[in-house]
C-alpha cells in the first residue's frame, strides 16, 4: 500500500518520558506491518523530565532515518512546533498526533486509506461520528466536550464534526500554507486550521477514531484553559 508516499509524523512533546517510547514502538509496529515509508519527528520543548534523553535512546534503537530529533530550548506552543517540524519533514504527507497515547497509531493505515480514497488534502480524526468515541470520560467531561463542540458548530460552522481533534493527516504543502496563516493557540489552533483549510478550498475527509484518555500524566483542562478557549472562539467568530 502507498509505496510512492512517505509519511512524516510530527510528535510535539513536553514531559512525555513515559509515553514516548510506547507511542514510538506502536508507530514503528503499524508502519512496518503496513509496509509504509515513514519518519517520526520528535519536537521536544525542553522537557525537564528527560524526554529528550529517552528520544535519543529510541533513535539508537530504530535509527536516525526513522527517528528524527528536532528539539527546542523551551515551551513555545503547538503552532510553532508544527511550523518547526514541517520545515524538517521529508515526507509528502504529514501526520499530526498527541504523544500521550490518546491517539492510537493503529488508525494511521486507515487515515492513509481514507486519503487515497477521496484524494483529500486533509483527513481529520473524529470522536463524534461513526464508530468514534472516547474512553475514561465521566458525564461532566462528555457534557463539556459535546457542549463546546456544539457552540463551535453553531458559531463557526467548521464543516467537520470534530474540529478540535488533533489527530490528522495533511498533504505537506497544505499544512505548510495553513500553519503560516493561523494565529491561534491550543485547541483553537486546531479549529482555525480546519476553517482555513475550507476557506482555501482544500478538501477535508473525516475518519472515526477512539480517544483513550491519558494513561500517564494529568489532563490539561482547567479554568484558565476555558477562558482562553472562549477568547479564541470569539476571535475566530469575528475574523473567519
Amino acid at each position: 500500500m502507498a509505496a510512492k508516499h512517505k509519511y512524516s509524523v510530527l510528535l510535539p512533546t513536553y514531559n512525555e518520558r513515559e509515553n514516548l517510547p510506547i507511542i514510538v514502538w506502536l508507530l514503528v509496529k503499524y508502519f512496518s506491518e503496513g509496509n509504509i515509508d515513514y519518519e517520526i519527528i520528535i519536537i521536544d520543548d525542553g522537557s525537564p523530565d528527560g524526554t529528550l534523553e529517552v528520544a535519543k535512546q529510541l533513535q539508537k534503537i530504530y535509527g536516525e532515518k526513522r527517528i528524527v530529533l528536532r528539539p527546542r530550548e523551551k515551551k513555545l506552543g503547538l503552532g510553532t512546533a508544527y511550523i518547526h517540524g514541517v520545515k524538517h519533514a521529508t515526507g509528502d504527507f504529514v501526520l499530526i498526533m498527541d504523544a500521550d497515547m490518546s491517539h492510537h497509531p493503529k488508525f494511521i493505515p486507515q487515515f492513509i486509506e481514507k486519503q487515497l480514497e477521496g484524494d483529500y488534502d486533509v483527513v481529520t480524526g473524529t470522536r463524534y461520528a461513526g464508530d468514534g468515541g472516547v474512553h475514561g470520560w465521566d458525564f461532566k467531561r462528555k457534557l463539556i466536550s459535546r457542549g463546546a463542540n456544539y457552540i463551535v458548530q453553531v458559531l463557526l460552522r467548521p464543516g467537520v464534526s470534530d474540529s478540535t481533534g488533533s489527530f490528522r493527516l495533511y498533504r505537506k504543502e497544505v499544512l505548510e500554507k495553513l500553519v503560516n496563516s493561523c494565529r491561534s493557540k491550543g485547541y483553537v489552533f486546531q479549529i482555525e486550521l480546519i476553517i482555513q483549510a475550507r476557506h482555501m478550498g482544500y478538501s477535508v475527509g473525516e475518519l472515526p477514531i477512539s480517544f483513550v484518555d491519558r494513561v500517564y500524566g494529568e489532563s490539561k483542562l482547567g479554568g484558565h484553559e476555558i477562558i482562553e478557549w472562549m477568547k479564541g472562539i470569539l476571535y475566530l467568530f469575528a475574523t473567519t
Binding site: 463524534y128 472516547v134 477512539s210 480517544f211
Partner: peptide, 14 residues
C-alpha cells in the same frame, strides 16, 4: 447536546 452526550461511544475495548 443531551442526545449526543447520551450516545457518546465508550471505547472500552480500545
Amino acid at each position: 447536546i443531551g442526545y449526543r452526550v447520551a450516545t457518546f461511544n465508550n471505547c472500552d475495548e480500545a
